[in-house]
Amino acid sequence: MNTQGKVVKYLDNVDTDVIIPARYLNTPNAKELALHCMEDIDADFVKNVHAGDVMVAGWNFGCGSSREHAPLVIKTCGTGCVIAKSFARIFYRNAINIGLPILECEEAAEEIAAQDEVKVDFDTGEIFDLTTGKTYRAQPFPPFIQSIIKSGGLLASLKEGTRNE
């Protein structure tokens, strides 16, 4: 699994209220919600994002609410991967469950600049900054989680489990 695209960069403690403001949560429709992704801190995000782009942020990305709508809108906008120094735990879990690739890598999150062209190999955890030529290696997921992601999310993996029983 790979993604390649331009980097959009954010700071620490990006919370779920700015990823998708609660005032829009009167619908579960991901496409409709995605129109408002990041708008409270970056009004141009939705306009500028392209399929495969990489979001890079600091500590505690996705803190706050348990709304699964948050990773869902980031994915629906076309973002190929989120790289952060750390993720808030519910966001981390939700991203896995809905199949949004995320990687924790302090060094990459610190050094990669906005607008850099970045390629990510999600299977190996390798992050290539094609603009600077530098390579980073993120901690790969434990096998348990990898199997969930490979199945396409938690529910698909549960269904597979049922079939294998």
Binding site: S66, E68, I90, R93, N94, N97, G153, L154, L155
Partner: peptide, 14 residues
């Protein structure tokens, strides 16, 4: 603990 909607769906089922 808090979880997302997919965990809720799986939890309700299993």
């Amino acid at each position: 603990t808090g979880v997302g909607s997919t965990d809720m769906a799986a939890g309700m089922a299993t």
